[in-house]
Amino acid sequence: MMPPPTTMGEGQPSQPVELSGPQIQVLRDTSGWARFLAIALFIVTGALGLAFVGIFVQTRGAGTVANISVPNIIPAVISLGVTGAAAVLLWLYGRAVLAFFRQGEPSLAQAFRKLRVFFKLWTIFVVLGIVTDVVELLGKL
């Protein structure tokens, strides 16, 4: 029979939640995937940055820099910033989880804080994506 679930009520002494072996393994794997994702995002950020510089140099050489409008630049700069920030946050999350295995808390709390900021950033990015799509859609109609 399963024990009744414990709840975090007011006034109840807060006790740390002990992690089981499989949970520790999941955290370790998640840390690995997060760092892999961070490296992939660092590469994407670098590639995007190089592409922007390349486009700028090319248009400057052709004397058409004035043709690059602000509405074109803003989404590109935002994408570059968000990708770079996401890479940094995921990297820090992965490192903090590893630090938790070495030293214990407060590293896990720090890792989850980075993850929370990552989710905030992702949410804001999705909102910007929706706004861009809707504007584009309205422009077509």
Partner: peptide
Amino acid sequence: DGDGGAATGTLAMSEEALQE
């Protein structure tokens, strides 16, 4: 990974981590 491979003893999630 450094030497982060071996976790010794029991690992527990603090209240602060839960709140996050």
